[in-house]
Design a protein around this nucleic acid. Structure first.
Lengths: 157, 157
DNA sequence: ATACCTGCAAACCTTTTGCCACTAT
DNA sequence: ATAGTGGCAAAAGGTTTGCAGGTAT
């Protein structure tokens, strides 16, 4: 039942997707990639693009700029602060570290933009999950689906 | 047609939602908030929770921890680097600033966790949008819907 | 009175999946 | 041979919205 990838095969589709991704600096959406790839492979499907984007992300050949989980989370503390996200159980914790607003000024000078705020998030394993994390698979672990129960524990108070 | 909020009325629903949000440190999802609020207001609907979460976020009484747009964006440059996101046009740009990995070690020592990476994103107005941003509404501007054409321009190469 | 709000349900939209034929190894 | 893949279309799942009746101000 558990479909675990033994090896990743080389295909035309994946090759073009990666080339398109590397060929732009625009941080495109999946749909944009789809439209681009379609110019070369008119029959490719959106599903394939998503599948390969996920594979490329899991194998470290691309980055996915998103919150990770598909839902938004809300925070009743309006003052900006940093967060730590456990990549295994999904828990989100505040980081007891002061917000460094001088970073905003630095970016403004570097890029000529107006910065209102920044968000800093750390990703890794929380104390509890790090303890349970004994084995270390050589294949990208992100390919494995996370059990729903574990994800849910993060919603508990 | 454009529904612009002139003032925000005080309602039981919004009051309870804010109280629930302030009463937890768990960075809950909208659905978790819904379940909690329902204990006090059994007839409230998920839609109302979403609507109010959005209003609270826009008025600065809560933070939304998400990427902002509903889609993921991908980046063909696997090396970690920082991003700047224009809150007006949605454009995403790389920040020419070295990644400070000592932050990861600092958080590990502060929290007793294992940090694999961090993500730092700056939000504000890009040079172009800052120039066009002449007026400054006193009501939270996030309440206003963004024209589709402007959002789309961010997908262009 | 008059906006604003709510509940409900349908609609939306991005992302995921099942199925089956195909193909790289 | 055989597991990984792709195309297609349906499904999923979080979030938004239209509507019509309520409700603060």
């Amino acid at each position: 039942m558990e479909k675990v990838q033994g090896f990743i095969r080389k295909t035309k589709q994946r090759e073009v997707i990666l080339r398109v991704l590397r060929g732009t600096k625009s941080h495109p959406t999946a749909d944009w990639v789809y439209q681009e790839v379609r110019k070369e492979l008119p029959n490719i499907s959106l599903g394939t693009v998503y599948r390969n984007l996920k594979i490329l992300t899991a194998s470290g050949e691309a980055l996915e700029l998103s919150y990770g989980s598909s839902y938004s989370r809300f925070d009743g503390t309006p003052e900006n602060h940093y967060h730590f996200v456990c990549q295994r159980c999904g828990r989100v914790e505040d980081v007891p570290m002061p917000v460094d607003e001088s970073l905003d000024r630095a970016v403004e000078q570097l890029m000529g933009v107006k910065v209102r705020q920044h968000r800093l998030e750390f990703y890794g394993l929380c104390e509890q999950c790090a303890a349970e994390q004994i084995e270390r698979p050589e294949r990208p672990m992100a390919l494995r689906r996370q059990p729903v129960e574990e994800r849910d524990q993060a919603y508990a108070h």
